[in-house]
């Protein structure tokens, strides 16, 4: 079990959210979309220029910029 930053996750990698280190508007937006500790996510892919990243959670697809993914720590499945 390894905890890494979401930016470092590879395509197809799955994990569980550990911590969201953002507050204010950014934190609010991230949490509104269901990114809270305990949520399972899978990296679905990245945009052609490597940013933003698309992830899958709770049965839908969400996109985030890397600068936003930086606030999210994920415990990846081995």
């Amino acid at each position: 079990m390894q905890v890494i930053n979401m930016r470092q996750m590879k395509r197809g990698q799955t994990g569980t959210i550990k911590r969201i280190g953002a507050n204010g508007q950014m934190g609010c937006r991230i949490r509104d979309m269901g990114l809270v500790p305990g949520t399972r996510i899978t990296i679905q892919g990245r945009a052609p220029l490597k940013d933003p990243v698309a992830l899958r959670l709770m049965g839908f697809t969400l996109t985030l910029r890397n600068s936003e993914a930086d606030f999210i720590l994920v415990e990846v499945d081995s």
Binding site: Q25, R29, D32, L64, R65
Partner: peptide, 10 residues
């Protein structure tokens, strides 16, 4: 910049 957090609808 406003957070990008956006849904990709099916």
């Amino acid at each position: 910049s406003t957070p990008f957090v956006m849904e990709l609808p099916p």
